[in-house]
Design a protein around this nucleic acid. Sequence first.
RNA 1: GGGGGUGUAGCUCAGUUGGUUAGAGCGAUCGCCUGUCACGCGAUAGGUCGAGGGUUCGAGUCCCUUCACUCCCGCCA
Length: 594
Amino acid sequence: MNKYRSHTCGELTVKDKNKKISLSGWINKKRDHGNLLFLDLRDNYGITQCVIENSHVNFKELEKLPLETVIKIDGKVLERSKDTVNKDLNTGMIEISINSYEILGNTKELPLPIFSDQEYAEEIRLKYRFLDLRRKKIHQNIILRSKVISFIRSEMEKLGFLEFQTPILTSSSPEGARDFLVPSRLNPGKFYALPQAPQQFKQLVMISGFDRYFQIAPCFRDEDARADRSPGEFYQLDIEMSFVQQENVFEVVETLMINLFKKFSDKKIIHEKFPKITFSESMLKYGTDKPDLRNPLIISELTEIFKRSDVSFEIFKKLVKKGSIVRGIITKNTKDKPRSFFDGIDKWAKEQGASGLAYFTIEKDTEVKGKGPVGKFFSSQSIQELMKISKAEVGDSVFLACGKKNEVEKILSDARDKIGHELNIINYNSYAFCWIVDYPMFEKDENSKKIVFSHNPFSMPQGDIKNLDLSNPLEIKAYQYDIVCNGVELSSGAIRNHIPELMYKLFAIVGYEKEQVDKKFSGMINALSYGAPPHGGIAPGIDRIIMLLAGEKNIREVTMFPMNQNAQDLMMNAPSEVDEEQLKELNLLIKKKK
RNA sequence: GGGGGUGUAGCUCAGUUGGUUAGAGCGAUCGCCUGUCACGCGAUAGGUCGAGGGUUCGAGUCCCUUCACUCCCGCCA
C-alpha cells in the first residue's frame, strides 16, 4: 500500500468483496446515466469499473472529467449482481463504489482516441507515441517484446552462453551498409561509426577464449526503410560459438526457436526439425532464398520441353533459343477453376511487370492434352514429359514463365504467394522454419562482370581447406546459412574463416592484394594470427521474431519509439540542427543548401 | 535516386459528369437519462478541402508544380 494505490486495475475479484481499496489510473471510458456514472479505470494491468451515484458530493465533478485524466479513486469493492457481470474483464465480477477521488494528472483534448480499434495515420501515432502506446494492441505487443527478450536471455544462459556488451562507438567498416558516423571531438576530422552489427567484436570474443557469446545487440545501418525494416537501428540476437561446426549452431538455434515459439504462440510449428534446403535448390523450387514453406506450391524447370519439335509455342521457343529459360508452377486439381481465376493470375503477373504467365490445364479423354489458351501448342507426348518432370497429374494446371533466370525466379516466387493465397492452400496459422545452406562463396557481379563475395568475406569455404581448389571460384560453397520462417529471413550466419592465409587467397580472387586486406581488416587479420579457434555463429533479428509472434506486418507495431520512413523521430524531433558552438567543437562546417 | 497510393472537422472517413451554404460517425461543449460496459437521447461549436499556381462564369473535384505520410524498387557484406 502506498499513497496512490492498494491494488492495480487488473487484480480485484470477488475475494476482495467489501474491502476498502484505492486504485490509480487513466479514465478509459465513461458511461453517464445522469444519475449514475460508470467510469472504467485503466492501468497497465487491466480495467476496473467504478461507479458513483448522483447523491454523492463528487458526482458532478467526476461526470465532467475528460477521458485519459489520471485519477486516484478510494472506494469499496462490490460484488456485481449476476446480470451485470462483464465476462470480458478479469475484474468483471466486481466494481468499485467510489468514495472519494483525486486528480493526479490532467489532460488536454486528445489528438487521437485511446479507446478505439480504429487505425490511425502513422504521423499522428508517432508524434504522440506515448498516447499510441496506451492503446491495447500495441501495448500488448511491447509487453510481448519484453517477455520474449527476457525469455531469450534465460534460455541462452541455460544453453551455456555468456552475454557481453560490445562498443557502440567503433570504426567504420569498409564493406556492407552505409554507416552512421559520429564526429570525434578529440580527434578532429575523424569519425566513429555505429556498429552495423558486432560482427568483428563477436569474433574477437571467441579469439579471447570466451567460448560461447550472445548479446541482444543494437545494430545501426543508414539504409532506407521498409515495412519490416526500421531506418537506423534494430536488434539482433547475436550469437557466436567456438569449436563448432554448422550443425552445432543449428542445434542451438532450433532449440531456442522451438521453445520460444511454443511459449509465445499457439500456432503450429510445421517442422520441429528444420528442413535444410540448399541455396540452389531453393532458388529453383521457390525462386527465392527465403521460401515460405507453408505454401506447398513448387516450381519446376521446364526449359527442355520448349526445345522439342512437337511443341509449337513459338513465343517461348524463340526466347529459349536466345538463352531464356522456362519454369512453371503446378497447381493440383484445378481443372474446374473458372477461366477468371487463370486470367486473374495472368493479369496480376502483367501488373508486376512480367510478360504474364501462360497457362493450361492437363486433361485426358483418349489421350493427354492441354486445355486453355496455350494448351494446343503442346503435343500429348510433350505434356507427358512435362508431367514426369514436374510430377503433375491429369486435372492439374501449369503456369509458365519465360525469361532470364533471375526474372523467372522473381515472378514465379511472387506467383507462388499469389496463387497459394488465391487457392487458399497456405496455412497461415502455422510457422514453417527452414535452413538455407550451401551459399556460394562468390558470385559474378551483373554490372562489372567481376567476381565478388556473394555474402560475407569472412565465411569459411567448404571443402578441403588445406588444398582448396580455387580454379573455379564460382563453384566454391561456403559454410554460410540463413534461417527462414514463413518467408521471412530471420538471420544469416556462418562458420567463420579463422585462417589468415586462406583469407588472403580468397580475397585475391576478388582482386585484393595482401596489403589491402591487412589495411582494411587489420584488427581481424591481426587477431586471427595469434591462435584463433574455429568458430561460427548467427544473429536472428529480434524485431522480426516478435513480428512473427505478434502476427504484425509492420516493424513499428513491435517497436516502442520507432522513426518514420525518413528516419525522423517525430516525437523527439530527431534529427535536429545543433548549435554553432557544438559544430565548432567538432571541427565541422555545414555546407549550406542551394 | 525512381515508381505507386494517400492527404477534406481533434480522430476515422463520404463527397457522383466541375454547379447553391462541403457532410456522417466518434471525440469536444451544453442539456436529459439509475445498471451500463462501443450505454441511450437532444442540441451546439469545430473546415486555409496539405500548399502554390493555372484552366473555367464557377474547382474539394480538371491540369501543372510542390510538401508530408506510406508501400515498393534501388540499397540493406
